[in-house]
Nucleic acid binder design. Structure first.
Lengths: 332, 332
DNA sequence: CTGAAAGCGCTTACAG
DNA sequence: CTGAAAGCGCTTACAG
């Protein structure tokens, strides 16, 4: 098998006793073909084990079956899953991927764009490095569709794909309410951070819809760290305010909160329920994961961006929010 | 720019006033060309902003400039970095990548192989899921080079790329010795695990070369978990044996050990130094990382496999061990 | 050193 | 419904 000369469409045609064009149409379903000859061609094709030469096909059609992927910090903790999601989805779509990891400054960007053009890529996805990240709009540089993932773009007509931060907040609130918590606080990072702000928003609205207000009236905002979780929680408990649940902006904060709660002699989840965001432990190992959390489904974000470039899926402009998922474990 | 008709080699040739073949040779350096005409052609090419159509080139040469990548569990914690490393290296090599994530059973494997053949890929890399993973040998199914990464293959002539586990052990031992530790124990997973065994080996040999024996004469072997780290360390300390350092088979064990050491009223690193493997915290966030550890450089493993397929690099058969790196932080 | 020509393996108007 | 032919844009023997 490894040394066999490849069989071509011509071989199939002559075995089936038809012309090249007929064989092509029979196999690709173009034009009208009698059922009989179609069958004959298919048979010949199967018998010979015909594998159309994708290179020739690409060349004839001017489409490469490959998607350009431009990343920023491809190996970042949060970006890597987005890239992997996009990669695997492209694989499923039978599209190759041509990646370039680079700074997005004008010079390198232009060079990369030129490289992709030369390859006649069928689409491109730009992957940023989070909601803080502002992606340059390159839509007009290509005549193929462009999708933006995990980052914001200035042109509102660009098709962008990002985790649904508000949904994360809503999911957390809803879950806590359903488990009969009423005195719920929110500890998170600075509200100038879009992810933090989005989560806080969704959370606040969901509570409001249930006729409740969060403990303290607004989030305790500091940073994304374990240490901030400890500090804010300690302060909260010391204030004497009644609290039976805390929605933490991410898992690190939640872990900090947990340790502060324990240090105060209270129990999780009996006294205070805890929910985080990121599914940080799950990312590492499913073994010892205990924290109830919201998984931002970063792979789905990449996959959605990739899929939007597919032939069947109608590419659509604007901001697309990719749903996240509640993971219930033992802290709620 | 986005709507311009692409300029072809023919355009360049006529502007330079030479034939198509001469233009091609001038640009690609084939055959003898007078310095003068070469310059003229280059000028024309630059002026027109000529981007050779990679599709046509691929077709003419029968090489696709794309590498097939077959993975198992692409999104696994350890496998993902290997994939990312390979992906980015391929990007640097200007090779596209066609990925398929699938079980490696005969049927799906054959289908995937056929798909890659049809695309006339220039090489393939198979990515396993760790040293426990046995990769099927597909070298003979392709007429292009095949590299195996992060897994073992049965054929010793296959080119495989894996983290150097023994080196990890040696690095750990050497570092501990250099920091004047002499009573060193090793807590790790079962020695039937190749990674665990390799690390233990390297560690034992490095100690022996320094004329020392590890505390207890052999590793304490259990599992890869935090809990095992706690248990083994507690037992070790309770036994009264003198210990001033512990080499832990991975970071989870090390974190467990740390907590046990603290619980025993001892201090890290003053009383007992601690070193792990995986650079687990660094993977997550560089912020709060404190553990001295060995980074297995998983991205390098993928990159090395990819690079071995490159034109310039001579592909060479056999097992290649990719170096790991010591990361000194505050537990030693 | 340079050019005319064949060839890579498909697709797709265009006739019939 | 089917076939002969042109075309996609390069590369590379082969002559000169």
């Amino acid at each position: 098998m490894s040394t066999a000369k490849s069989v071509t469409l011509g071989d199939v045609a002559s075995v089936a006793g038809v012309s090249l064009s007929t064989a092509s149409r029979a196999l690709n379903g173009g034009g009208r073909i009698s059922e009989d000859t179609r069958r004959r061609v298919k048979e010949a094709s199967d018998r010979l084990g015909f594998q159309p030469n994708a290179l020739a096909r690409s060349f004839a059609l001017g489409r490469s079956q490959t998607i350009g992927v431009l990343t920023q910090n491809a190996s970042g903790v949060f970006t890597a899953p987005v890239l992997i999601g996009a990669t695997m989805e492209l694989g499923r779509m039978n599209q190759a991927l041509l990646i370039r990891d680079a700074r997005f400054d004008a010079a390198t960007l232009n060079e990369n764009v030129a490289r992709l053009q030369a390859r006649r890529i069928d689409g491109v996805v730009l992957i940023g490095d989070g909601l803080n990240y502002s992606l340059p709009s390159v839509t007009s540089l290509f005549r193929v569709p462009v999708a933006y993932a995990f980052g914001l773009t200035s042109e509102s007509d660009d098709a962008s794909f990002n985790p649904d931060a508000e949904m994360a907040g809503r999911l957390a609130a809803t879950h806590l309410l359903e488990t009969r918590r009423r005195r719920i606080a929110h500890i998170t990072a600075g509200l100038d951070d879009p992810a933090s702000r989005g989560r806080a928003h969704g959370f606040g609205r969901a509570l409001a819809e249930a006729g409740l207000e969060q403990v303290g009236g607004k989030p305790l905002s500091g940073g994304w760290t374990f240490e901030w979780g400890v500090e804010a929680t300690t302060r909260l408990l010391a204030s004497g305010t009644e609290v039976d649940a805390i929605f933490c902006g991410n898992d690190q904060i939640a872990l900090g909160a947990e340790s502060a709660i324990r240090a105060a002699g209270l129990s999780v989840p009996r006294d205070v329920a805890l929910i985080g965001v990121d599914n940080w432990e799950g990312m590492i190992t499913s073994d010892s994961a205990r924290l109830t959390t919201i998984d931002p489904c970063l792979q789905d974000v990449g996959a959605a961006a990739a899929r939007s470039l597919g032939a069947d899926e109608a590419w659509s402009p604007g901001a697309h929010l990719v749903p996240c998922r509640l993971i219930v474990r033992s802290t709620t």
